[in-house]
Simulated scan of single mutants.
Amino acid sequence: MNSQLIGQDLTLAAEEQDAGAPACVLSFNASDPTGASGIGADIATIAAMGAHALPVVTSILVRDTAEIFEAHELDSEAVVDQARSVLEDATIASWKVGFLGSAEGVSAVAEILSDYTDVPLVSYLPNLSWMDDDAQMAYLDAFRELILPATMVLVGSHNTLTDFLLPEWDAERPPSARELAVAAAEHGTDYVLVTGVQLPDQFIDNVLASPQGAMCGERFERFEASFVGAGDTLSAALAAILSSGTALDVAAAEALSFLDQALDAGFRPGMGGVIPDRFFWALPPGEEPPEGPAPEESVDLLDDTVPPLHSRNVH
């Protein structure tokens, strides 16, 4: 066989391999040494959903499974260089934005996103109460101005999104998911996925909404545990499902179902919170996660700042 034919065979083989390759999801997030949140959570979740993660580290968290002690932001040029190098090599099908480290990091990431406006972006806004007040304000202002206009779906807990999008809200009732979506739309975001909406019974609601109203949702029975990494898990799952071309409402329902089961199988590796088991589906048949004694109180699923309970009881 001559060299020309060999080259043609290799090209055909590469094309066949690419056709069956998983979709690539580029994630901007912090490095979390516990693996509970941040880039480690994104990699595990995206892989569990059948896509391939392209992880770009934006900062380094110093934390355990109970709390965040401090964060060390990376130089914005280092963040840009990481992203540009892989973007020049691989084709991405969706983005995931998590914690970007600082207002400068937000600006750097926004510049990259602006070159790929046709790629769907899922942005997760965690609870940042652990940050210095001035740094937090600068970060949120930059996120609001630069990331929201590029965002397809903004994910966050009801409390966090209310404080961020409707800081002057003074009605006796909490804002609805639609009202949060209207506020997000004023900054250019198409949809919100709001979690932890309190219901009068033993359930909480999780709602995907546009400014026109709720599109889909899923109610969870209250989880009586302190979780770490639930928000990153949900948003990364949504980004991974969207990378396959799935319709948004279907993707949101699948992502919520995945989170529910991952929390149900969660485990406690240390003395702090419970980490979602993103590979719950890989447990041997008939094997169930252990359950602990009765819990003390219920907490917000996506609030990583709540103090840990002494018992582990997961749904």
Results as ranks from 00 to 15, higher is better:
residue 12 L to H: 12
residue 16 E to N: 15
residue 31 S to K: 12
residue 34 T to W: 02
residue 40 G to F: 04
residue 40 G to A: 06
residue 42 D to F: 05
residue 44 A to H: 12
residue 49 M to I: 09
residue 49 M to E: 07
residue 49 M to Y: 09
residue 52 H to P: 09
residue 54 L to G: 05
residue 59 S to G: 13
residue 69 F to N: 13
residue 74 L to P: 06
residue 85 S to A: 09
residue 87 L to C: 03
residue 88 E to G: 12
residue 90 A to N: 12
residue 91 T to C: 15
residue 92 I to F: 07
residue 94 S to L: 01
residue 96 K to E: 13
residue 104 E to W: 03
residue 110 A to C: 06
residue 120 P to M: 07
residue 125 L to Y: 01
residue 125 L to T: 02
residue 128 L to Y: 00
residue 131 M to Q: 06
residue 141 D to W: 07
residue 150 A to V: 03
residue 155 V to G: 00
residue 158 H to R: 00
residue 159 N to F: 14
residue 160 T to C: 08
residue 161 L to R: 00
residue 163 D to W: 01
residue 193 L to V: 10
residue 195 T to N: 01
residue 198 Q to S: 14
residue 203 F to T: 11
residue 209 A to H: 05
residue 217 G to R: 11
residue 225 A to N: 11
residue 225 A to G: 10
residue 226 S to Q: 04
residue 230 A to Y: 04
residue 234 L to Q: 00
residue 238 L to G: 00
residue 240 A to Y: 04
residue 243 S to L: 07
residue 246 T to W: 04
residue 249 D to K: 04
residue 251 A to I: 03
residue 251 A to C: 13
residue 259 L to S: 03
residue 278 R to V: 08
residue 284 P to W: 04
residue 286 G to I: 13
residue 286 G to A: 08
residue 287 E to T: 10
residue 287 E to V: 15
residue 288 E to Q: 13
residue 291 E to F: 15
residue 298 S to E: 15
residue 298 S to T: 15
residue 299 V to E: 10
residue 305 T to Y: 03
residue 307 P to R: 13
residue 307 P to M: 14
residue 315 H to L: 14
